[in-house]
Each structure stands twice: as structure tokens, then as C-alpha cells.
Design a protein around this nucleic acid. Structure first.
Lengths: 357, 357
DNA sequence: CTGTTAGCGCATTCAC
DNA sequence: GTGAATGCGCTAACAG
């Protein structure tokens, strides 16, 4: 029923091997022969059988991109950058070759699904795997993921961590095929809080992300470091509330924090989306931003500049990190020294923060 | 090097065929044997070779989800819903079976990349393909896509269109394996403009999406229908500006429209993201929303409620449509009668629209 | 530069 | 219920 490489070979009056060679473009073939084959391919409307090809070659052109939440632009931006960087790299290839199938897999933040997707990708003998965003902050899961990634690496799959802390114990052989691009969440958070401190704020609330995420912890640690240095370490626990990375969490946390401490003059959110919820809560309580309460976010997602007032935040090089991860995944770029590169965040001061009242 | 099914068979002291049977769970196997096999699988840390399995079975567990812009929550929400609906469906299966690998492919709105991804998926013998969002509004490309989809369908790949108009000429055999879930963009746009008209607005500007998209055209047609009925059809072309679906486009278009017609009392944007840009432009010009100018968007993305003032818009059942597409893709749900279902949009009136001044 | 020869790892007939 | 044999469609050595 379906047309195979052998059919093409017959039509072009060459051997199957030759057809394979022109299709993959990785071997010298006479121009005349190539054209004959190409014509046959067109006429027969032939499409390579991926599984067969992957089986024979023991590799595939699948590249998996794991994200925690595909509906969150944070991940969308990174994933998009990874894909387009990969597209540019393989674009110049032959007819059927070179093209990588970049696919994004949505784990929904679930450790099980993360592992499941990794297994599925392993099963497909993926060429590369890119894990994006914060990891689940649990030793057991971390070890499981590390083990899985080590196996993938051994099997020849390139592994790239993008916007995620380095693996717990990646000292061994995994180090070779594993590159890590991590964000300086802690440093960014510290500078952000220092900015607020510099504006005279002394009573700051912090709306943290879900407890079990590394991103949450690192940003929180940066905040606490700044607070502690300023001699404000006492009330930290009371003025911190955890919740998911969504606007609703920001809304509710802001209400709760104001209940605990009506005298707050600044609220720092774990990310921009949460900050949006914080702003909404403040407005609903009749508080002005930043006159009554300053608000800050993190990530500098595209909508942050359109918030009213525009959000002070920490800009992460999402696009740059994704693009680099894409190049790392295709082997178009050499891994950073030591397999680890840290990308800093830049404080972006806008209208949502002002002097303490 | 890598452990194969034969290794497992040897360890469990059964034939490869038996291992295959317990792994796929679609054949009676004695409980004792099954357990022995399972143990061997665990001990050897065996992972099925997807390509080999797909080659032998002539099917794969890959499901492709094509999106126009992965960084846009509109697509993220749909894609996430598709994936989770599929996950639930296949979850109860056997060890290695049942699990579909749902992957999203970012076309970036480019017709070529759309076709490329379709070919890549065809090459992988994907189990299903879901195309989301508006199509490129070009007969040539439409025909090419339709042809490709027909071929996919013939090869046994389920095809689902989600949030996209039906194919040009899908009358033939493709109809069987092809389901379409389309949004009533025109109706939604019409009701939105009628709402504005009902508030007394007579001079409305329209910020349309890119010209070559069906979504753009349908929303624009709905707007124009309402305007024409109200006897306001004359100035339509002058008061319409096209641009990409991003905030910047909204910003610039708003400026341009105000230049053309300083007396505007309402601006309708092609989607919420564009509307955000429109609001920013209005603010920068010192105009109040909605006192001076009313603004409306489309889609009701999560951030729209947090805009200041909150955005009047048309809510599309993004999540519901995606979930249904996911079920259609896995065969968990029967296609709608005629293969086509239209999902309506609901007018959501918030604070960004008010009576004309 | 091109043809021939072997498998790649698994799912499936068939027998038993 | 289980085992033995066959082929899925392609790539990768080798020859020539």
C-alpha cells in the first residue's frame, strides 16, 4: 500500500542504498543520479519511514523539550527559542535529512509525568532532551531524574538543562553529554529586594511559589539574604506565603499578608503572573500602587510592561537561554566550560515600586 | 550494549514473543509468567525501542499538536488541554503501552513550517495530528495542507482541526478520519461590536490581525456585519488597521487610528494581547478608558481580567475545545455529526467599555 | 560513485 | 498459554 524506498529505487532504476544516500545527503552521489531519484520521490510522493530509519540508524531526529506549564509564557518563550534555534541549525540539509522534530512536552509540574516523558523520549531514542524551568526540589525525585538522564546520555542522547539548577550529583560520565544553563534566581531576587530596601521599605511581604520547586527556594533565599543583611530577618516566616505560580495565588496571598501585617509597604511576588494577582488584590482593597504599597515581580514577561502601573521586575534572558539550549541540543554550540553556565537577571525598575510612605 | 527484548526474555526464561505480549497487554498471559517478565524488565531496566516497535506494528504513539505561536497563551491553553485529555485517556494501559507521546510543534505561523512539521509527523507515522488556531488564508497553501492531511488520514493518522475553520474541500475520503472543532469567531465579533453600538458608539476603530489569517478575516467580518447593519459601513476601511497578534501592533495601530480619526470613542482589537497594546497607547496619549475611549479584546485570556480597567472581550472555550480535540485524537470520543462542531464565544462585559461620551 | 548483503528490535502470524 | 519463524523499511559496512 504505502510506497517504500524500494519503490523509489525501482522507479529511478538505482539501488535502495543509493536512494538512501541522496535522501540523507551525507554521501557523494552523481548529480544525474540524484536528480533521477528526486524525481521518482516526487512522482511517487514518497515519505521516509521514520521508525524504520531510526531503527536502522539507531538514532532519531526527535528532540524533546520538557516544560512545567505550557500555558505559561515563561515556558512558551523558552520553548519557542529552542525550536527556532534548532530550525536554523538544521535548515540547510538535504531533502529529508537534517530536519529535527522539536517537540515540547508538558509535564504540568508533575514529577511522575516528567519521568514518564523522559521514558517516552528514551523509548523513541531521542537525539536530545531539553529540560526547562525549575526542578522539583526533592532529593528522591532529583535522583530519579538524574539517573534517567545519565542513562539517556549514555545512550547518546544530548541532555540540556535550561533555566534549571545543575543536577545533584552529575560528576561522573553524565557530565560529558550534559550541559546546564542556569538562571541566577537568587542573585536577581536579592537585588530586587535591595532595590526595595533602598527605597526605604522595611515591612515587605513575600509571595513565594510552590514550596517544592527549586525556583521558589532560590528566589526566596535571595530575598531573605537581602532582608537579613538589612537586619530584617526576624519576621521573615510570618511575612512569607507560598502558593502556585498563578495570579489567583497572588491575589489570595496578598490578602493574607495584609491581614497578618496591615502596615506592609511592599509586596514582592515570586513571578510576574503572581504579581498581577497581588496588584488586583491591592486595588480591590483600595490601596494605591506604589503610593501605598510597592509591588515587584520576576521574569519580565511581555505583559509586565502593560500592567498598571508597569511592573518592576527582574528580567531573565529567556530567549537567549532557549536559543543557546537549542544550539547545545543540536551540537551547533560547544558546551560551556565545566558544562555549566549561569545567566544573570537584570533588575528592571518601573512604576510599581516607589519610596516607602 | 543496550538491553533488548531478547535479553529480557532470556532472563525471564520465556520467548521474546511472550515478553512482547505482557508489555503490550493485549493478549492473555499467565500471571506467574507475567510477573517473571516484569521482574526481568525491572532488573534489566529495560525500555522498549520505540522505532523498532513502530516499525513492526506500523503505528506509533506519537501525537502531534501544531500551534502558531507557542509563546502565546491562547495556544498554550489549548495545547495543555489536548495533552491532559490524552493523558487521562491512555493512563490505564499496560506497562509500556497506552501511553501516547503528545508533542507540540511550533510553526510560528509560517506555512512552510506547518507543512514541514506535517511531513515530519507523517514520517514518524504519527497516531494523530491536531492543528490548532487559525489557518493561513491562502487557497494554495490551504490546498497543500488539505492534500497532506488527506494523505495522513489515508495512512491511518487521525486528524483534528481545533479552533480552525473546516478544510476547503474535504468532501471525499478524508472526511472519515477528520474532525473539525471550529470557533464562531464571526458571531463573537459581531456581538462584541453590537455591544459597543448599543452603548452609543458610532466611531469605532478596528485593530485587525495579520491579513493572511482566517481568524483575522472572520473576526473582521463579524465586526463589519454589525457596523453595516448599523448604517456605519462607509468608513470601515479607513478605520481598520492590520498588524501581527502582539501588543506592539496594538500600540501602533491605536496611534495610527487616532491620527486618522481623533474623534474615535471605541477601539476593538483582534485579540486581548493586541488590546493591551491599545490600552497602553491610549494611556500614553492621556486618554481615559472607558471615559474617553472604550476598548475591547477577544479570547478572554487569563491576564485580561487583570488589565486596568479589566477588559471587555469574547470568551472562547479554549480549554474545552482542546480537551475535546485530545479525546478525538485518541479516539476516546466520537467525531461530531458531519465531522464538524462549532463552538461559540461568549461576550464578557467588563470595565473597559462604557457609554460613548 | 554505485550495488549487494546483512541486520537493527520488535510484533505477529502460525503451530504446539 | 507459549514458542518459533518471518518480515516491517531502512542504513551501513563492504565490495566493485
Amino acid at each position: 500500500m504505502t510506497v517504500t524506498l524500494a519503490d523509489v529505487a525501482a522507479r529511478a532504476r538505482v539501488s535502495p542504498a543509493t536512494v538512501s544516500r541522496v535522501l540523507n545527503g551525507n554521501y557523494p552521489v552523481a548529480t544525474a543520479t540524484r536528480e533521477r531519484v528526486m524525481r521518482a520521490v516526487d512522482e511517487l510522493d514518497y515519505v521516509v519511514n521514520g521508525p524504520a530509519s531510526s531503527l536502522a540508524a539507531a538514532t532519531s531526529d526527535l528532540v524533546g523539550i520538557l516544560v512545567n506549564d505550557i500555558a505559561d509564557p515563561f515556558f512558551g518563550i523558552i520553548a519557542g527559542a529552542v525550536q527556532s534555534a534548532m530550525g536554523r541549525a538544521g535548515g540547510g540539509g538535504a531533502v529529508g535529512g537534517g530536519e529535527k522534530l522539536a517537540v515540547v512536552c508538558n509535564t504540568g509540574g508533575s514529577p511522575e509525568r516528567e519521568l514518564t516523558y523522559l521514558t517516552l523520549l528514551q523509548r523513541q531514542r531521542a537525539a536530545a532532551v531539553v529540560l526547562t524551568g525549575g526542578a522539583v526540589d526533592d532529593p528522591g525525585h532529583g535522583a530519579a531524574v538524574a539517573a534517567k538522564l545519565a542513562r539517556l546520555a549514555v545512550a547518546g542522547t544530548r541532555v540540556v538543562l535550561c533555566g534549571r539548577p545543575p543536577l545533584p550529583a552529575a560528576g561522573e560520565d553524565a557530565g560529558a553529554a550534559l550541559a546546564t544553563l542556569t538562571f541566577d534566581n537568587e542573585g536577581g531576587a536579592r537585588r530586587l529586594t535591595e532595590h526595595l530596601l533602598g527605597l526605604g521599605h522595611r515591612r515587605l511581604g513575600y509571595v513565594a511559589g510552590p514550596v517544592e520547586r527549586t525556583t521558589t527556594r532560590h528566589r526566596l533565599e535571595g530575598h531573605r539574604a537581602a532582608m537579613t543583611v538589612a537586619g530584617l530577618g526576624a519576621d521573615l516566616d510570618r511575612l512569607t506565603v507560598h502558593g502556585p505560580y498563578d495570579r489567583r495565588s497572588g491575589y489570595e496571598a496578598a490578602c493574607e499578608l495584609l491581614r497578618r501585617e496591615p502596615g506592609l509597604t511592599a509586596l514582592v511576588a515570586a513571578n510576574d503572573t503572581v504579581a498581577l494577582g497581588v496588584c488586583a488584590a491591592l486595588r480591590d482593597q483600595g490601596l494605591r500602587i506604589p503610593d501605598d504599597v510597592s509591588v515587584a515581580g520576576f521574569d519580565d514577561l511581555p505583559f509586565s510592561v502593560d500592567a498598571v502601573p508597569a511592573l518592576t521586575t527582574v528580567r531573565l534572558p529567556l530567549h537567549e537561554a532557549g536559543a543557546r539550549a537549542g544550539r547545545l541540543a543540536t551540537g551547533a554550540e560547544a558546551p560551556p566550560p565545566g558544562g555549566l553556565a549561569t545567566m544573570g537577571g537584570e533588575l528592571v525598575v518601573r512604576a510599581s515600586t516607589g519610596r516607602a510612605r
